[in-house]
Structures are given as C-alpha cells and as structure tokens.
Write a protein that binds this DNA or RNA. Structure first.
Lengths: 193, 193
DNA sequence: CCTAGATCGAACCGATCGGTACGATCTCAG
DNA sequence: CTGAGATCGTACCGATCGGTTCGATCTAGG
C-alpha cells in the first residue's frame, strides 16, 4: 500500500496541511493573536479535526515551532553545504541566507524567539533552546573548520551575531543588518585563528 | 506649594506607583499573560483608578515600555560616563553592565523586544524602534570617539551584538553571553580604526 | 454495498477578557 | 465643616477564549 494516494481523505495529509497553514498564520499574527476558532476558519478545517490531530492549541504550537525550527536550521545548513570548503565562505553564506530571509515580505523575526518572549511555558522555552542549539552547532562547526583557537567561544559569538541581526532586522529595520553582521562575523573569524 | 506632600492621596504618586508595579508584573508575566483584573489585584489598586490614569491597558503598556526604555538606556549611558575617556573602556562598560542585568534574578530579555515580538500594534513597534535608536546613539558615539572609519556601520554592528547577547542570555543561557559579546565588540572596535 | 472512521458545521460550555458603572469611603482644600 | 474629587470594591457588560459534543456527510477498505 502506498503511503498516501490521491486527493482524498487522508489523516496524515490533513495533519500536514494544518501544520503548514498554522505555521504561517501563527507567525503572522502571533500565538496569542488569533483564537482557535479563527485559526480553523483561515485554515479551512473544523475545530474537531484540529483537536483530534493536535490535542490542544499548545500541542499545535509545539508542533509548529518544532517544524519551523527544523526547516529553518536545515535551510541554513544547506546554504553552508553549498558554499564550498572555505569556512569564511560558509560563514558568509549563513548571513547571506539570513539577509534573504529578512527581506522576504512578512518577515517578523525568529518565530521561536518571538514565542518564548511572551509565552513562558516549559515546552516553548525548550523548543527555543533546541533551536538555538541547532544554530550553535552549525556555527561552532564553521569555527572549528576555520581552526579557531576557541571554536566553542567563537561559535557563541557568531550565534549572538545571528540572533542580534534577526532582532535588529525585525524591530529596527531590515536594511543592512545581515550584511553588517556578516562583516562582523568575518572579522571575528579572521581574528580567531 | 510643594510638589507633593506626605503619605496621602496624590494622583501623581498613585500613577507612579501603578507604573512601577505594572512594569515589574508585565515584564514577569508578559503583556498578554495577565488580565487587567489580576494586574490591579497584584498592584493593590482598583480598576477604576488604573483606567482613570492610563485610559486603557494599551495605554498602560505604552507608558510602561517608555519608562522602562528610558531607565535602561539611561543606566547604560551612566555606565559609559563612569568608564573614563577610553572608548574601549566605555564599550566594555556597556557589556559589563548588560552582564549584570542578565544575571539578575527574573531577567527575561528586553521588555521592548519581547513586547514587539508578539504584540503587533503600531505604538509598541514604535516604542521598540525608539528604544533601539537610543542604544544605537550610545554605541555610535563610542564608535565615533574611537575614530572608526565608519562609525554608523560600527554602531549598527555593536547594536547587533547588544541585542544578540540579550536574546541569547534570555533564551539560551546567561553564562558568558555578555562577556563573549564584549570581547567580540572590542575586536570589532580595534579592527575599525 | 456496507461499515468504520475522517471531517464538517454549528451549538454549546465555563472561564476570562477589556472596560464601565455605581455607591461607599476617605482626604484634602477652602 | 463642607464639598470636590480620588479611591475602593463589586457587580456588571458583551465579546472572546480554549475546548467538547453531536448529528450529518463523505470516503475508503473489505
């Protein structure tokens, strides 16, 4: 039996569709910025269906954050992989990719950080920490390949630049934040060997 | 007539007391994390009094953010002023002060950025932008006094470090974020002359 | 063809939301 | 002492919240 077939009733597909639509809507409006009823209307699904798949609004939020974190960090990892062998090029690729993201219409900062900023429950905070750890792993890897004396420390500094650029781009103006963070990152990288 | 006298009924004092208490509570719980009724209970004031002084919950939030932004940026400006004439010392003083803040119990990141992260109304976004501009002015001034070739650009990079360190300290772990950002900032400052 | 189950739409639940109204109490200025 | 107004406590308002329930409809596997 194939995993899924056609355009028919298929719980897995329904779940995925809810997840994708909810990701966009909750990012746009904020987690507390729309109720479950309005969410279901915009998704085009009944409340019963949503609750059967995700149990609660918090459950949906959790799934949304996790999927978004994986997609985002995976996207950055691809940018690094496509940048060749030079760690400096890889690092520049990270910030160039971020710059693309910042310039996309509807950019509102990091969804995980936004969620953690005002939604204090355990699960959201844990998801945000996992997300930042994914970033940190990527950046520490670049630092290590560049032969930094303190790859862990440099990785943390690069993480600070990534998150800082995202916050500044979201709340102070997109223009140049990614490029400025990239230039700063390259200076730090060069100075750390 | 003195501005205010004694421990009696005094609208200005009442307003200030509400503002101070609400600042702490809304920072701790998040703007949407507590209702007006609960807020009034914890402050020790009636809803009518709160509404007479601030008009609406949004009005209170606005006043809270503005006062907090002024206090915070004023505190950093004092740290700079107390650091002597060397721009590098002044810059280090900024991040050392931030580190003190991060380590204080109850630290939850920047209140303005947290508010803007999920509360999309015009007034909150404007307050956050003003707040970041205050930071930017302070940092650009240091960059200029250090003789940077591009003080504005360096100022923006330093702002990215400040906000990045705040986000990382809040959501990924306090340890070392301020010191790492400070070291990065000093490298950038040294490389920019 | 028939049934198990996925989905819909709408009604419904108690709780809470932001905000208002009102009478009682208290403080101060004149 | 009196009156203006600041404050309190509480009740109240309509709206919305997250979540549940139920009958009707539709689909797909046997």
């Amino acid at each position: 039996m194939p995993v899924a077939q056609g355009t028919t009733i298929d719980p897995a597909r329904t779940r995925a569709a809810i997840l994708e639509a909810a990701t966009a809507i909750l990012y746009e409006r904020g987690i507390d910025g729309i109720g479950v009823a309005g969410l279901c209307t915009r998704i085009g699904v009944s409340k019963e269906t949503l609750y059967r798949h995700f149990g609660s609004k918090d459950g949906l939020v959790q799934a949304v954050l996790e999927s978004r974190s994986e997609r985002l960090s995976g996207w950055l990892a691809e940018a690094v992989a496509a940048a060749g062998d030079d760690p400096a090029d890889q690092l520049a690729a990270v910030f160039n990719a971020l710059g693309e993201w910042y310039d996309r219409p509807g950019f509102r900062g990091c969804a995980m950080v936004n969620a953690a900023a005002q939604h204090h429950d355990e699960a959201v905070l844990a998801a945000t920490e996992r997300h930042l750890n994914r970033y940190l792993d990527l950046l520490t890897g670049i630092a290590a390949r560049a032969g930094a004396v303190d790859p862990a420390g440099l990785g943390q500094q690069l993480l600070i630049l990534v998150e800082g650029a995202t916050v500044v781009a979201a709340h102070h103006g997109t223009a140049g934040a990614a490029a400025q963070a990239r230039d700063a990152a390259l200076v730090l990288l060069a100075a750390s060997a």
